Simulated assay, not measured.
Amino acid sequence: MKVWTEKSGDARTVPYPDSLRQQLANWMDVGRGMVYGADESPYLFPTRQGERISGETVRYVVTQAAEESGLQEVYGTDVEGRERALVTPHTLRHSFAVQCAKNGMRAPFLRDLCGHHDINVTEIYLNLANDDAVDAGRKYGPQA
């Protein structure tokens, strides 16, 4: 599936589990047309107000879902006094990348998957995965 990236202004291919294939096909073929009258839209989530769902709506949906599931925490405020939530769309992206690194995905593949232009940005995820491995080694490894 192609996903548009506002930051870089291009699209990249994003994988999804085979278990979602049928649900996505049903949504594309029937659901979104019935709900939004958007049979021919190139976007997965069109809206009545615009061509596609906004970043702000995605942030709202993710933070609301985290709150309703009891996972959300507020960890501070920004310079404008708005509360900062722990679980955000970027948290999900970051968690996905770290898990890919933990599972052994090599840096060039992870870079392409995340849409990073600089491999050094991708290395951050690999370092976090390595730190987890060291912590696990300390916890589960031989004790003196």
Rank of each mutant, 00 (worst) to 15 (best):
V58F: 09
S19R: 08
P46H: 05
N127K: 13
G137E: 07
D39I: 02
T91V: 09
V62A: 07
G50Y: 05
Q143L: 05
N130L: 05
Y16L: 10
T91P: 14
Y43K: 05
A25D: 00
P46R: 01
M1A: 13
E83D: 10
V30S: 08
L44K: 05
E80G: 03
W4S: 14
G9P: 14
V98E: 07
G37D: 07
A101E: 10
A66G: 03
K139V: 09
P46I: 05
S41F: 02
R93L: 11
G31I: 08
Q99W: 04
E123L: 06
Y75S: 06
L113R: 06
M34S: 15
L113P: 01
S41N: 04
R84D: 03
E56C: 14
E73P: 02
V74C: 13
N103C: 02
D10K: 15
T5E: 15
M28P: 07
G141D: 05
A25R: 10
Q72N: 06
V62D: 03
L92N: 06
Q23P: 02
D18C: 00
V58C: 09
G70M: 04
Q23C: 01
S95Q: 13
G76Q: 08
S95Y: 13
D29C: 00
Y125P: 09
S19Y: 06
N26L: 14
Y125S: 07
S41G: 07
A25E: 11
P17Q: 01
L110F: 03
F109E: 12
L71S: 13
E6C: 11
P108Y: 04
V79T: 10
N120E: 14
P46V: 09
R32Y: 12
N120R: 11
F96L: 06
Q22F: 03
T122C: 09
V35H: 06
V3H: 06
P15V: 06
T88R: 03
F109L: 00
D10F: 11
